[in-house]
Each structure stands twice: as C-alpha cells, then as structure tokens.
C-alpha cells in the first residue's frame, strides 16, 4: 500500500508541475484560460482560430514543460546510475565526459554553421564520442575498473574542455561567442515538439533501459568481485548501464545545454527521502528531476523579463534547498 502511494506520487508530481508551468509566465493566463486552451487539442482542428492563449499554451509552454521534465528526469536518473556504478556518491551524469563533449560539439557547430540549430546533432554525437573515449581508456587494462573509467572521464573531459576553449577563442566575438556561451549555460527557451521527438528517442531509450536494469545497479554497487560472485555479468551489465546513462544524458544535454547540478544533487535528495535501493530510487529521482527542472524553468521565466539561464538557477535554487534537506534529514545516514 505504501509502495502504491509512493508510485502514484512519482507519477503525479511531474504532471502537476507541468500543469503549474502552463499557468505561470510573463503573459498572465488564468486557470480557466489554461483549461480552455487545453480543451482544444490542436491536432484535430485548425489551430489558427484559437488566438493567443491557445498558441502560448500549446506552442510555447507545453513543449517547454515537457522537454524540461524529460531533461530533468534524464539527468537525475543517469546521475543515480553512475553513482551506483562507480560506487561514489560524488559522481554526476557528466562523469564520463558527456557534458564536455556535448559542449564542444555544440560550440563547433555554432562556429562552423553559424546557427544554434546545428548544435543538437553535434552535441549528441560529441557527447557520445567523449564517453566512448573514456570507456576505451578505462578498458586499457582489459577490465573496466571504476577508477580507470573515472580517470578516462577526467582525461577526456579536460581534452574537450581545452578544445571548447579553442573554439571560443577562434569564434567571432560578436555573433558566435555569445551564442556558444548562452548555449553552454543551458536553456529550454527554444523547445519545440520536433526537439522533443528527436531528442526524446535517445532519452527514452536511456531512461527505460536504466529503469529495466535498476536492480543490477544495486548489485554492481557492491563492487566488481562481489557483483560477479552474486551472479552478475559485470562487464556486460556495466556496459549497458553506461550506454543507457550516456544516451539519456547526451539526449538531454543536446537540447537543453549543459545543466549541471541536477545529476549530482537530485539523486542525493532522493537518497535522503527514500533510501538507496535503486529499485525505488531511480523512479523517485526521475520524478524529482523532472519536477525540479520544470520549477526552476518557471522561475527562470518569471523572475525577470530576460530569461535567466538554467545552469545558473539550478545551482542557486538547488544549493540552499540541498543544505536545508541535509539538516532536515540528518544527511540520510551518510
């Protein structure tokens, strides 16, 4: 019974947050406006006749909220997965270099094509490439020990960070450089349904894969020797976890830019609230990550006229909240 209500909360919370984000923004819309607009699904009718409210809800706020939920969920869940895999609670979804790779890819695309649209595929490809490099470095000694993988991630991240600096250095300082910098700070402002559909594929595959294999993440966190003695094919399972977490993170980063913090801290908030069993922790973190990013995105839209980049707000909002939770829950037995 307890578990049923927990899962109900896990499912309902993001939906409530999405609904909240439809109601809030610089353009004031009342509850009735929102309900009216939601009642007219544009797929079945000609949407030009509905006016501004309808457009704001269906074309701007809804895709943005959905994308925010997906990105937040992906970053949080892959953070949990990587923490379990590396047996280290300080690891985040960027540990194997996916963020730096994606950042470089996006910057390169902006440099080459002068448009942010090209940044998505480049960010996705380079994010995945960075993780492949880290993985190969981690396998130099045949085994994929956690420490070698982390080391691989550190090396690859720093190489891509250097490449990113180089791209910034050669970019046109009036057009390209600001675009790169804003992309890196993260935003959902350009969210469209096409983004959701395209980036949604890697994100969904990654998250569903991690949900499916979440029991094995528990066992893998016992360390390679014990996990194998418990019957886990460690290299195969680790490969699947890394693959899924990378797909999820790269899919998220390529549409939203580099949003730090979520992949590190949402898992911890989940651990404090419901413990460390990944069977429950992963769905809960998914929900928490989705809610957190939607709420932060609402803040970023309503605080000032010009949107504040998400990367800034996630840390500014999340930091104090995290400290509050630390005090409240006595740190979850760490």
């Amino acid at each position: 019974m307890k578990r049923v209500s927990l899962y109900a909360a896990v499912c309902l919370a993001p939906i409530i947050c999405i609904f909240l984000s439809l109601c809030m923004g610089r353009y004031p819309l009342g509850l009735s406006d929102v309900m009216n607009a939601l009642g007219n699904v544009p797929l079945w009718t000609d949407n030009s006749s509905f006016g501004i409210n309808h457009t704001i809800i269906w074309e701007i706020r809804l895709p943005r909220a959905i994308l925010g939920a997906m990105v937040g969920a992906c970053l949080a869940v892959s953070g949990v997965a990587f923490q379990g895999l590396f047996r280290n609670p300080l690891v985040s979804s960027g540990i194997l270099g996916v963020s730096s790779g994606a950042g470089f890819g996006a910057a390169l695309a902006i440099l080459l094509f002068n448009t942010v649209a090209a940044a998505y595929p480049f960010a996705l490809v380079f994010g995945m490439l960075a993780v492949v490099c880290s993985y190969l470095i981690g396998r130099l000694y045949r085994t994929t020990s956690a420490i070698m993988l982390v080391l691989g991630g550190v090396i690859v991240s720093s190489v891509f960070a250097a490449l990113l600096s180089f791209v910034k250095y050669v970019a046109d300082p009036y057009e390209q450089l600001p675009a790169i910098v804003f992309w890196l700070m993260g935003s959902l402002a350009s969210a469209r349904y096409s983004d959701i559909l395209i980036a949604g594929i890697p994100m969904s595959i990654g998250v569903i894969g991690l949900l499916a294999i979440r029991w094995q993440i528990n066992v893998l966190s016992m360390g390679d020797r014990e996990a194998q003695a418990l019957g886990i094919h460690t290299s195969l399972s680790k490969g699947i976890v890394i693959f899924c977490a990378t797909l999820a993170t790269a899919g998220a980063v390529c549409v939203s830019g580099v949003i730090g913090w979520i992949g590190l801290v949402i898992p911890h908030i989940g651990r404090m609230l419901i413990g460390n069993d990944n069977r429950i922790l992963i769905p809960v973190s998914l929900s928490l990550g989705a809610c957190f990013l939607i709420l932060v995105d609402i803040l970023s839209r309503i605080i000032t006229g010009a949107e504040i980049p998400l990367g800034i707000l996630t840390a500014l909002v999340g930091g104090p909240f995290f400290v509050y939770l630390l005090k409240k829950t006595k740190g979850g037995d760490w």
Partner: peptide, 22 residues
C-alpha cells in the same frame, strides 16, 4: 557468472561499504 553463482556463494574478506543500504 550466473551459473557459478548458483553453485558457489562468496563471503568476502573485506567488504567496502559505500551506500547505506538497509
């Protein structure tokens, strides 16, 4: 590994504790 693990269980010499599982 799965087949071995249905025949032999292992009690390690040192278990390094990371997450506070129950």
């Amino acid at each position: 590994p799965g087949r071995v693990a249905r025949l032999i269980a292992y009690v390690p010499q040192i278990h390094e504790r990371t997450f506070p599982y129950l």
